[in-house]
C-alpha cells in the first residue's frame, strides 16, 4: 500500500509543489539540472504519492517496493519527492549541492535516506532494478520494482543488456518509465543519436509497451493501473514529456538540461507556478 494514496487532484497539487521545490533549490544551489526534473515531475509524483509501497519513516523497510532513478542527474525531483514524502526535512533541500550536504549533485546511497543506489553515470539503473526484480523472484517476494530512465540515456549500450535480461527472465515485477522529452545536452535526441522507434525496440525484447502523454495525470494513472494489473512480462511506459514542463520559457529547450535558473529567471518561473522565491524558500526552510 502507498501511505498517501492521493487522488488525481491531490497529485496535481503535489506536482505543483514539487515544481516549486525544484526551481527554488536550483536557484539556491546556483547549479544543477532543471529540464529533466520538470519533465519527470508528474509521473514521478504519482509513483511516490499513489503507487509505490514505501514507508518514509523506515527507508530500509524490507517489504518495500524499489524505485530507481537511473538518470541520476534528476536529483531535484528525486530529492523534492523524498522530502515531501517525509524521508528528511524540507529545509535540507536548501543545502543541495553544497559542501557537506547530504544532498549530493548526483544521488549517493550512503548519504540520503530513500536513495536506493548511487547513480549519475548513465545506463546502470535498469540493470540494478533487474537485480532487485530477479532477487525478489528467487525469494517469491511480491514487491514491485520501478525504474525511471531517460531517452538520451538509452544511447548507452548497457541499457539494452538490461532490457534483454528482463525480457529473457520474464521479470513481470519490473516497470520502467522512459522520460521521452526528446532533448539532451547537445540538442534534440533525433538529431544527436536517434533512439526511435522506441516502442518497437522494447517490444522486440519481449516487453509490454504503453505510450502516454507523460505530463497528463489522467493518462499517467491509467498507465500505472495497467502496469499493476499486468503479469507475465516486464512493462515499459514510454512517457512523451516536455523538457522544462510548467515553466513557459524553459519548455522544449535543450539548453535547460544542465543549468539552473538565475534568481531573476527563478522568480519568473515561480511566478508562473503561483509563488515567489521568498515565499517558497521560507516554506522549505521552515520544514
Amino acid at each position: 500500500m502507498n501511505p498517501f494514496n492521493y487522488s488525481a487532484e491531490q497529485l496535481q497539487a503535489a506536482a505543483l509543489d514539487v515544481r516549486r521545490d525544484i526551481i527554488t533549490m536550483l536557484v539556491e544551489a546556483k547549479s544543477g539540472h532543471t529540464g529533466g526534473p520538470l519533465s519527470c515531475t508528474d509521473f514521478a509524483t504519482a509513483l511516490s504519492f499513489r503507487y509505490l509501497n514505501h514507508k518514509p519513516s523506515e527507508p530500509h523497510w524490507t517489504d518495500r517496493d524499489f524505485l530507481f532513478y537511473s538518470i541520476g542527474h534528476v536529483t531535484p525531483v528525486n530529492y523534492s519527492l523524498l522530502a515531501e514524502c517525509g524521508y528528511f526535512p524540507l529545509k535540507d533541500l536548501m543545502t543541495f549541492r553544497k559542501l557537506n550536504s547530504r544532498l549530493q549533485g548526483h544521488p549517493h546511497r550512503l548519504d540520503t535516506p530513500g536513495i536506493e543506489i548511487s547513480s549519475g553515470s548513465l545506463g546502470q539503473g535498469l540493470s540494478i532494478a533487474c537485480g532487485v526484480a530477479k532477487g525478489s523472484k528467487i525469494d517469491k517476494h511480491p514487491r514491485r520494482v520501478f525504474c525511471i530512465m531517460g531517452d538520451g540515456e538509452l544511447q548507452e549500450g548497457s541499457c539494452w543488456e538490461a532490457v534483454m535480461f528482463a525480457g529473457h527472465y520474464h521479470l513481470d515485477n519490473l516497470g520502467v518509465i522512459v522520460d521521452y522529452n526528446k532533448r539532451q545536452i547537445d540538442g534534440e535526441v533525433p538529431k544527436i543519436m536517434d533512439v526511435a522507434p522506441l516502442a518497437d525496440k522494447w517490444r522486440a525484447f519481449n516487453w509490454q509497451v504503453l505510450e502516454i502523454d507523460g505530463n497528463d495525470m489522467q493518462q499517467i494513472l491509467a498507465a500505472y493501473d495497467e502496469m499493476l494489473r499486468h503479469r507475465d512480462r516486464p512493462m515499459v511506459i514510454i512517457a512523451h514529456t516536455t523538457m522544462g514542463k510548467g515553466v513557459s520559457f524553459m519548455e522544449g529547450k535543450a539548453e535547460w538540461h544542465g543549468k539552473p535558473p538565475t534568481m531573476e529567471q527563478g522568480e519568473q518561473a515561480l511566478q508562473e507556478l503561483g509563488t515567489t522565491y521568498a515565499e517558497w524558500s521560507s516554506r522549505l526552510l521552515a520544514g
Binding site: 524490507t62 540493470s127 540494478i128 532494478a129 533487474c130 537485480g131 526484480a133 532477487g135 548497457s158 535480461f165
Partner: peptide
C-alpha cells in the same frame, strides 16, 4: 546466467545485494 553481458552482470549483482543476497 547472464549471457555475454559483463556490464549488466556487475549491476544485476548490485541489485541482488540490495535485497539481501
Amino acid at each position: 546466467q547472464m549471457g555475454i553481458a559483463e556490464q549488466n552482470m556487475a549491476t544485476v549483482a548490485t541489485g541482488l545485494s540490495l535485497v539481501g543476497k
